[in-house]
Design a binder for these strands. Structure first.
Length: 1135
RNA sequence: GGGCGAGUGGCGGAAUGGUAUACGCGCGUGGCUUAGGACCACGUCCCGAAAGGGAUGAGAGUUCGAUUCUCUCCUCGCCCACCA
């Protein structure tokens, strides 16, 4: 009898399978359905850890079984080979990152092969290979050409240690994910991908996917869609009451656009004048400027808004020293064929004409604003550059076709008359908006500070902004104490009430979310707290609405409510600090005195009457009302109807303790007692009474939804009804996302070079397809320079290039792409890995996409998985892929911890080295142990138990031993274990498909235990199992322990690999036992067992059951008998 | 503070409306053995001598019957977090 020598066996078969090309997967296989099983490809860190084993060898079980079941399974592997560690190693050890990476890949490949996983290595993909990243670059360029990739000055997370930009996802609690250095905010020009354009689709398309709900929910939450409204709060220009509108050269400017704008500005309270300038179709700026000077009254109280050529005139006025309150240039809100595309918008003309912008700025008391339409004629990037030159804000417009003028109203208006736009999800509280709060980063503040004198406390404001800019994200998070400074000298107008309200700057408002500005009201905890701290007036506009749960059904059933005025009365003791508590017994309502107000009755009198009726106390003295009424919808059990009660909460004090006799009924219905303040709070069990009680102690913030009052035409509506109505009337209904655009540029060497050329004449130019890939140049120094430039910038020769368009001198982009870009499409390349003409031919993709099952780590849910879904959708829109979604099914696997239950880490010294365990116990044992440790796809984690691994090894040893004794194996099928074998086939197959590998292995163990027991029964190890049965068992074992199964199979004399065998089928007829044991229950508790034939009918079952528990049934009356055939009989008896 | 998820032996876990604790580890007793355990057999939720009875975080509900469904509370884990 030979020993189970895993080393020999595993080495032998791994070589043999490779030689036979056992796992080379054809694109198509006759009669076999394709199945694409994907697991995340590893980063070549240089050493395989247990997590890799868990990720690769466990899904391999599924791959192997599906193959045996006749599927053509693609189970590919590759390396996600770009990234920081290679570069860090390069800097530290002065070796080329490529050398380092390739060495690691070679070593890890060897390790991966030791798993005996059925990877198809012929399709291996390595992202740092130029033949791969050529197509990463190509796809990026397709996105660039479509406007999906763009450059933007962005506040970014900057790691001072790694000297690079980090994605939001790489910042953990304000620290760099990799080196844990504190991250700082920095403004830098970055490449972005417009993932936010896909936010809605990324959420909505989740519906169709067969993913576990928690993973979908995590993505939804990360995208964070919230629906609300943008509302403009016009700023009060104390000094500017008049606006002069200067028209442009086109007739429409004068006849269509400016009259409309004039009307809008007049609605805002300005006096507006549109001078009739000479030669509108062939203007001369000198002539027109003189005309305006002569015919219009211009002073520091006048603003000039110049449209198109009119803007030039406005600038000329400033240049000639005319004092103006404010100047706004409205670029070109029209596009379309009537406007010669060669003609440039105002500012470009202005720049050409050589204006002296210093003089211009000096002459303007207010500020210059620029309206850029962002259409094809004026690319947004140009607008931004000019705005910078002018030190003025850029207000961006959308949709510039002239006949859609109505739609762009807010954009143009915001430019012509300054206003602050806020985002809110609670437009229902707009009428209570008593102040505005801007983020310190808000562009308007920056602008306002540039114009001295506009704000009265600019020094204080400047200091505050400087302080909050210095704060790291972390500090902002930690200091829950809200700070802020009022912007003195400036007021805004609440568009709903028309009232002037103050503006504040505070860093609890986040610049990057919404519009970076909020309006504050009495129904928000933060606003409340801030207002209390700084003594800013608040105004309540919501009355609480409480719907009691018992009432909800009633609402649905009957729909209408009976309105009832009512009171809630708290009564204070005449001498002690105690309050009168009342319990209404029939419904166990605990709280204060409550009751209805009769028709024509005074509210306070009604309350006094109720106090007297319920408690007997007579000498009540009214103290005060406790805030606004509280409304309650509920179903009255007493009246059998829906009640809509409107409670006025009141506070009384007794002057003395005199009491009257209470009626019999009231006494029966009510408990009355005196409770201290604290006791009272605990005692009250009804929400409306809680709200009223909270007001006894003073003002509190009511932050929930309710019913509107003091809100004009919206009075009486509920919050949910009012939110869209108010939002639409005073602003625009919009959606906001927490998801930011994806910043893809990295100031690093070891990544895919961004294939863009910067030309001083032509701007950003894509590299021609013929010149791809743009290969990484060899350089000597991989250190970033720390100023935000990639080390590539040092490769002077490489950087200098001819512009693809004008052939003039130009420079290459030196940033590289985020590695999440590389991994956004790698699974497509597996379908066609050798293609030199396309990233993957459509016909090849068709064989495998979309992926049937993608197994990976939970940490990628909001990163890689979301990014690659976006990437795929973008490719879909370009017609480059066939599916809207790449992954039909996504599963997140669990986590393997160290033996101490902690995350494995070198510092804890709890790292399990898989190589060592494989050496000692074998790959089959490690694979199988990992599969056995617990359910694979639970959001859970399992400690690696060194003893537990040994248990699996013991199991395999026992399998081995059984196979070594021919005397164990009969020629014919062993009848005793046949039905168990059938059940095992069924269970193992079903559990593997469900990825419940642990219970599948348990079934194999049960089977083996049973065989061994049988061997023992059959006189010392003889004839325990039939040969056919043994072969079936080996086939069931093959996916889990491929090497030992192959060796034993081979030992039986088979020529062809067990892994090419067909998965055993079970005979449903043989699954059933002839005799089954059923449970006998009495009142649902198991009290005995009975053996009955499987096909026994109800009466036989009942009879057998009765016999099993005869003694317990004696003298008892059986009320009911429940019979579940094959399972149990339950007697319901009366005690 | 918000979202998601989980609580079952000494431990990993099984059972998703029908005999709670399968399977494995650990532990105990015995065997084989000079010895050892990566061997074999038996035992191993709690109370009880037994007959019995009790137990799936706590409490309630639905049901003939609940680990499983519903509600309340407690504890733990993960993710997000001054998000307007």
């Amino acid at each position: 009898m030979s020993k189970y020598d895993h080393k020999v066996i595993e080495h032998k078969w791994q070589r043999q399978w490779e030689k036979d090309k056992l796992y080379k997967t054809p694109d198509k296989k006759a009669g076999a359905e394709n199945f694409y099983l994907l697991t995340e490809f590893p980063y070549p860190s240089g050493n395989l850890h247990v997590g890799h084993w868990y990720a690769f060898s466990v899904p391999d079980i599924l791959a192997r079984m599906l193959r045996m079941q006749g599927k053509n399974v693609l189970y590919p592997i590759g390396f996600d080979a770009f990234g920081l560690p290679a570069e860090n190693a390069a800097i530290k050890n002065k070796i080329n990152p490529r050398t380092w990476t390739e060495k690691n890949i070679t070593y890890m490949k060897k390790q991966i092969r030791s798993m005996g996983a059925s990877f198809d290595w012929s399709r291996e993909v390595v992202t740092c290979d130029p033949v791969y990243y050529k197509w990463t670059q190509w796809q990026f360029l397709q996105f660039f050409k479509k406007g999906l990739a763009y450059q933007k000055e962005t506040p970014v997370n900057w790691c001072p240690s790694c000297k690079t930009v980090l994605a939001n996802e790489q910042v953990i609690e304000g620290r760099c994910e990799r080196c844990e250095t504190e991250v700082v905010q920095k403004q830098m020009l970055q490449w972005n991908l417009r993932i936010t354009d896909y936010a809605d689709r990324l959420i909505d398309d989740l519906k169709k996917l067969d993913w576990p709900e928690p993973i979908k929910e995590a993505q939804r939450a990360w995208i964070g869609r919230s629906e609300g409204a943008e509302i403009d709060f016009p700023l009060v220009e104390k000094d500017v009451k008049r606006i002069v509108l200067l028209h442009g050269r086109e007739a429409s400017s004068k006849s269509l656009f400016l009259p409309w704008l004039k009307k809008k500005l007049e609605e805002r309270g300005y006096t507006v004048e549109v001078p009739d300038m000479p030669n509108p179709n062939n203007p001369n700026d000198d002539e027109q400027t003189e005309y305006v000077r002569k015919h219009c009254k211009l002073d520091a109280h006048t603003a000039v808004v110049g449209h198109s050529f009119g803007g030039i005139v406005a600038l000329r006025l400033l240049e000639r020293g005319v004092k103006l309150g404010r100047v706004t240039l409205v670029g070109t809100p029209y596009s379309g064929n009537w406007l010669d595309s060669k003609k440039r918008p105002t500012v470009r003309v202005a720049l050409k004409k050589g204006f002296d912008f210093k003089t211009i700025r000096k002459s303007c008391d207010g500020f210059v604003a620029l309206y850029d339409t962002g259409d094809k004629i004026v690319p947004m990037s140009d607008g931004e550059a000019y705005a910078k030159k002018l030190s003025c804000p850029l207000i961006k417009g959308k949709g510039t076709e002239w006949h859609f003028l109505g739609k762009q109203e807010p954009d143009v208006l915001r430019a012509a008359a300054p206003s602050i736009t806020v985002f809110t999800t609670r437009a229902d509280t707009l009428f209570g908006g008593t102040y505005l709060v801007l983020a310190p980063e808000h562009p308007w503040i920056t602008l306002a500070l540039q114009h001295r004198g506009l704000l009265k406390n600019e020094v204080e404001i400047g200091r505050y902004i400087a302080i909050s800019r210095k704060k790291t994200e972390r500090e902002r998070q930690e200091s829950k104490d809200k700070t802020g400074v009022e912007l003195k000298g400036m007021k805004a107008i609440n568009p709903a009430t028309g009232k002037e309200i103050p503006l504040w700057v505070a860093d609890f408002v986040i610049g990057s979310y919404g519009t970076g500005a909020v309006f504050a009201d009495a129904h928000d905890e933060r606003d409340w707290e801030f207002a209390m701290k700084y003594n800013i007036p608040l105004k309540e506009t919501l009355e609480p609405l409480v719907i009691r749960s018992s009432g909800l059904d009633a609402v649905r059933k009957e729909g209408s409510f009976f309105d009832r005025p009512a009171i809630l009365a708290f009564v204070q003791h005449w001498s002690e600090e105690k309050y009168l508590a009342v319990r209404y017994k029939p419904t166990d309502t605990r709280g204060c005195v409550s009751g209805g107000v009769n028709a024509g009755e005074d509210i306070i009198e009604a309350a006094k009457r109720e106090v007297c009726e319920e408690t007997g106390y007579v000498n009540t003295e009214f103290v005060r009302k406790l805030g606004t009424p509280i409304h309650g919808k509920y179903y009255s059990d007493v009246r059998k109807m829906n009640i809509f009660a409107h409670f006025t909460p009141l506070l009384f004090k007794l002057t003395d303790g005199s009491r009257q006799e209470i009626s019999q009924k009231e006494r029966e219905d009510h408990d009355v007692m005196w409770l201290s303040k604290k006791e009272m709070g605990d005692y009250i069990n009804r929400e409306d009474m809680h709200i009223a009680w909270s007001r006894v102690g003073g003002d509190v913030c009511y932050a929930w939804k309710g019913i509107l009052f003091d809100s004009g035409e919206f009075n009486g509506l509920t919050s949910d009804e009012a939110i869209p109505k108010i939002g639409a009337k005073y602003g625009r209904l919009v959606k906001q996302y927490h998801l930011r655009d994806w910043i893809v540029s990295r100031q690093r060497y070891w990544g895919v070079p961004i294939p863009i050329v910067h030309c001083p004449k032509c701007g950003l130019q894509p590299v021609g397809d013929k010149n791809l890939p743009i290969k990484l140049p060899e350089i000597k120094d991989y250190l970033p320079d720390g100023r935000g430039k990639s080390p590539l910038a040092k490769a002077k020769k490489w950087v200098s290039v001819k512009c693809p368009k004008c052939k003039g001198k130009a420079e290459r982009e030196t940033d590289t792409l985020d590695t999440f870009v590389d991994s956004s499409w790698y699974f497509l390349r597996y379908t066609d890995p050798k293609n030199s003409k396309q990233f993957a031919a459509n016909s090849k993709q068709k064989n495998w996409m979309p992926i049937n099952l993608y197994s990976g780590g939970a940490e990628h849910t909001t990163m890689h998985v979301l990014y690659s879904r976006f990437w795929h959708k973008a490719l879909f829109d370009l017609g480059l892929v066939r599916d809207k979604e790449p992954y039909t099914r996504r599963m997140n696997r669990s986590l393997i911890l160290g033996a101490d239950g902690q995350k494995m880490s070198k510092s804890r010294g709890n790292v399990i080295d898989p190589d060592e365990v494989v050496e000692r116990l074998g790959a089959d044992t490690v694979r199988m142990y990992l599969a056995f440790i617990g359910p694979y796809n639970e959001v859970s984690s399992y400690p690696w138990n060194p003893d537990g691994v040994v248990g699996i090894r013991r199991f395999l040893e026992r399998v081995w031993r059984l196979g070594q004794r021919p005397s164990n194996i009969m020629d014919v099928r062993h009848p005793y274990i046949e039905s168990l074998l059938q059940k095992t086939i069924k269970k193992v197959g079903e559990d593997i498909v469900a990825q419940k590998f642990n219970t599948a292995i348990s079934a194999l163990m049960i089977f083996l235990n049973s065989v061994e027991k049988e061997a023992l029964r059959q006189a010392q190890g003889k004839q325990a199992i039939g040969k056919g049965q043994w072969e079936i068992f080996l086939k069931l074992l093959a996916p889990f322990a491929p090497h030992i199964a192959e060796e034993l199979w081979d030992g039986l004399g088979h020529e062809i690999s067990i892994h090419k065998e067909k998965w055993p089928a079970y005979d449903p007829a043989k699954l059933k036992d002839e005799i089954v044991t059923i449970a006998v229950q009495i009142n649902g508790k198991t009290r005995g067992e009975a053996e009955v034939p499987a096909d026994a009918d109800k009466s036989i079952l009942e009879k057998a059951a009765r016999e099993a528990v005869t003694s317990r049934l004696e003298g008892k009356q059986i009320v009911r008998t429940i019979v579940v055939p094959g399972r149990l009989v339950n007697f319901v008896i009366v005690e």
